[in-house]
Design a protein around this nucleic acid. Structure first.
Lengths: 132, 132
DNA sequence: ACGTCTGTTATACTTATAATATAACAGATA
DNA sequence: TATCTGTTATATTATAAGTATAACAGACGT
């Protein structure tokens, strides 16, 4: 598997899994309908517990990014990803506010901050492409 | 005091304090040299423990946003705020990546994401102004 | 000098979360 | 029948968050 976990990080393992899977979908390394490794095999690959993987899958399933077929295991949501709802707008605004505040205090301009945001977005969504 | 704490939130109280104080500096509600309430009085005002406030102050002192004079208590850093160093760039990139990934998956465009970033920054830095 | 405020440190306790360790169950597959 | 899947349950350990007291040294005003 292409995932990497930092056991020394202060951010919980299941959160790292959730973030990396969402980034995988954003970069189209994971496409709608793609199968994901079973909770047991992924846990074994990463050297962590089954339940830690399961917790990440549950969160992504709850948010509508994954589906479970009881047949071929877990699959990336095939029928359209969830859109930009009020809950996400609030989550986004809260996260951006914290980052923007420290950026402003440290002397980073609004233009720089917006440019950095765009740069990160672009780098993320063009990760799986080789030819230009 | 103008601070508000959500005891039901999943984000730690001391983190809420750190974030709000940085936002206060960014919005110029807190200016360099301004005195901050003592750990005991602020804890009493918010109905929380002395050590929780102290932990927030320690973090901000460590990062160079606050100063302690052993005289008039804690004060907003008077001699210039810390700039944009490598550590902050890494922290910013990591935070933006998580937000940008989910935004992209949910169908928000790069332009929208950048615009939202700029909007949050602007709203934050123009909070203490009334006349235009 | 005295009392009071300041930040700071130390200790102990409770609570909640993260993570692990087993175990078992029901459905699907070969 | 085996073996895989997700799911659920229970128990345990480890760590972080928050609280509760207590004490100390420096600075201040009286």
């Amino acid at each position: 598997m292409w995932m990497e976990i930092d056991l020394q990080s202060e951010v919980p393992i299941y959160t790292q899994l959730v973030d990396q899977l969402i980034e995988g979908i954003a970069s189209e390394q994971l496409k709608p309908g793609d199968p994901l490794p079973s909770v047991r095999s992924l846990a074994a690959d990463l050297g962590i517990n089954l339940h830690t993987v399961n917790k990440a899958y549950q969160i992504l399933k709850q948010d509508g990014f994954l589906q479970v077929h009881r047949k071929q295991g877990v699959v990336v949501q095939p029928g359209g990803m969830p859109g930009v709802d009020a809950a996400f707008r609030a989550k986004l605004a809260r996260g951006l506010r914290t980052l923007a505040a420290e950026a402003a205090v440290r002397g980073m301009s609004e233009a720089e901050f917006a440019a950095q945001s765009a740069a990160v977005y672009r780098q993320l969504t063009t990760k799986g492409e080789e030819t230009k």
